[in-house]
Each structure stands twice: as structure tokens, then as C-alpha cells.
């Protein structure tokens, strides 16, 4: 019985996939928490489509070269993030609306670019990723991105929190808010690009949003929500890979599906707004 949880990781490819997912959790989960708290959950989704044309251009220029495709995705994502961020600040357009415009255009462009040259097999690989294809280089790349993301978050943490809870205060106290916001958007893209190697462009957001959603059912203080999100991302990643190996299904979807299962479990038993605490809260207190 216990073997089910260890045998999948006897060969090196599977172990590398596990390490990649665990490392990924440390960067993606905190980013996801902020996305969710800023009510930008769907924006992560939009952004993941926005990186597609960059990936596609790299694919056209250099074939299935992961490094080039990642750089392409990074450039495209940053351009969209910065442009839509600027558009929000300069015009009256709301962030979600301007982002929707950019990502729809990017997605259309990306699909046209990929299908103009590639096979449907390659399109699927770009859209859904492949954990089996993570080599040492990809692993270092993910680790590097995660380290960078964590450092950046540590630096912009306070302005970012204030920008979420009381943006006006920060606008009066200094210009840090706008800067923190742009840096944050940039690292949304960095995390998406690292996650996309493992999970593909479509499911990359799963490692961000689902752990963040899980954590919100467990605490009402951001300093606890973030660690809970990281732990649940690691658990989902591990169990997802076990599921993938045992049932012989693709790894990306099974990681996301596992996180989804934990999400619904948390929704029922979570102490911060979970269903059990809402409908069976116990007798009311004296004061």
C-alpha cells in the first residue's frame, strides 16, 4: 500500500518532475494568493493566454526549443502586463477589461502562429506541457525563477499588501504602489512561464489559484494564508504525480485535479468560512 506513494519516484525522470513541482509551489502559490486577494484570479488565466504568441514566435524561429520558447513567453507576457497596467493607469479602463482585450488578441495571434507551422501534437504540448520532458536545464530554470520570485515578493511585500487593502493611502504616502503593482505583474508572468514548462500554458495558472483558494478557507490573516497555500501546492503536486503514475493519466491535469479535490474538501471543513462552520457553527458564545 505504502509503495504506491514511493514507487512512482524510483526513476530519475519522475523524481525530477516531483522536484520541479515542489519548487514551483514555492513561487506560484504566493503569487496566486495576491492574485486572488486583488480579485485578479481570472487575470492570471488571461495572462497565461497572453504568453502564447511569444511562445509561438519562438517555436517558429527555433522549433521545440524550450529556452527560446520560455524567453518568448516571458517577453510577450511582460509586454501585455506592462501595456495593460499602463492602460489602466492612464485611461479610465479597468484592469480586467484592458487585460481581456490584450489577451484575446494575443491568444488569437498565438493560435494562428502555431498552426501556421506546427503539427497538432506540438500544439497540444505547448498548451498542456509535459512533466516528463523536464530535464536538468528546465529544472534549474524553474528553481532560478522561483528564487527570483520569492526575493522580489519579499521586497515588494509591504507596498503590495497596502496597494491591495488601501491603495489611496499608498498613493498619498509615495509612488511605491504603482511600482509594486508592475513588479508584481512581471512576476506573475515569470511564475506562469516556469509553470508552463510543467503544466502547459492552459493549466499553469492551476498552481497559483487553486492553492490560494484552498488557503483562504484555512486562515483570515495573509501572513498565514501564504504558507498554507505553499503547503497545499506541494501536497497537490505530490499526490497529483502519484495519481498520474498510478492511473497512467497525464501529470499536469492530475496535479490540478488533486488540488481541486483538496479545494472542495477545504470548502467543507475549512475553519475560515467553510461550509461546516457556516451551517453547523456550534452554540453561540457569551460575548
Amino acid at each position: 500500500m505504502v509503495d504506491i506513494f514511493t514507487t512512482p519516484f524510483t526513476d530519475e525522470v519522475a523524481r525530477r518532475a516531483l522536484v520541479a513541482i515542489v519548487v514551483l509551489s514555492f513561487g506560484s502559490a504566493p503569487i496566486g494568493v495576491f492574485l486572488m486577494l486583488r480579485r485578479m484570479s481570472l487575470m492570471g488565466d488571461a495572462m497565461s493566454h497572453a504568453i502564447l504568441p511569444g511562445v509561438a514566435v519562438a517555436f517558429l524561429l527555433s522549433g521545440m526549443n524550450r529556452v527560446m520558447m520560455t524567453i518568448g513567453g516571458l517577453v510577450a507576457g511582460l509586454v501585455v502586463a506592462v501595456l495593460s497596467g499602463l492602460m489602466t493607469r492612464v485611461t479610465e479602463m479597468k484592469e480586467d477589461a484592458s487585460l481581456a482585450v490584450f489577451y484575446l488578441v494575443s491568444l488569437a495571434l498565438g493560435v494562428i502562429l502555431v498552426t501556421s507551422r506546427g503539427s497538432s501534437h506540438e500544439l497540444v504540448e505547448i498548451l498542456f506541457g509535459d512533466v516528463q520532458k523536464i530535464d536538468a536545464g528546465a529544472l534549474y530554470f524553474i528553481a532560478f525563477n522561483t528564487t527570483l520570485t520569492l526575493c522580489a515578493l519579499a521586497v515588494i511585500y509591504r507596498p503590495l499588501v497596502m496597494e491591495c487593502v488601501d491603495p489611496l493611502f499608498l498613493r498619498v504616502a509615495g509612488q511605491a504602489g504603482a511600482l509594486a503593482h508592475l513588479v508584481f505583474l512581471a512576476f506573475v508572468v515569470v511564475s506562469l512561464v516556469s509553470a508552463y514548462i510543467a503544466l502547459g500554458t492552459l493549466l499553469a495558472v492551476g498552481m497559483m489559484i487553486l492553492p490560494a483558494g484552498i488557503a483562504q478557507f484555512w486562515s483570515r490573516d495573509i501572513s498565514r494564508i501564504i504558507p498554507v497555500a505553499i503547503v497545499s501546492a506541494v501536497i497537490s503536486g505530490y499526490l497529483g504525480l502519484v495519481l498520474s503514475a498510478t492511473a497512467g493519466v497525464p501529470a499536469g491535469p492530475s496535479v490540478v485535479l488533486t488540488a481541486g479535490a483538496i479545494y472542495f474538501l477545504s470548502m467543507v471543513i475549512g475553519p475560515a468560512g467553510g461550509l461546516m462552520h457556516r451551517f453547523a457553527p456550534g452554540r453561540h458564545l457569551e460575548a
Partner: peptide
Amino acid sequence: IDRSFPISVFDFTGSGLW
């Protein structure tokens, strides 16, 4: 102010020391 944001009274007030 986004009152649904999960931050404690202590941390929020501390922003006055910005």
C-alpha cells in the same frame, strides 16, 4: 478600504509608520 482583505488590526495600523 478593502475591508475583506485578510490583514490584522495591528498590521494595518502599523502602516502609519510608513
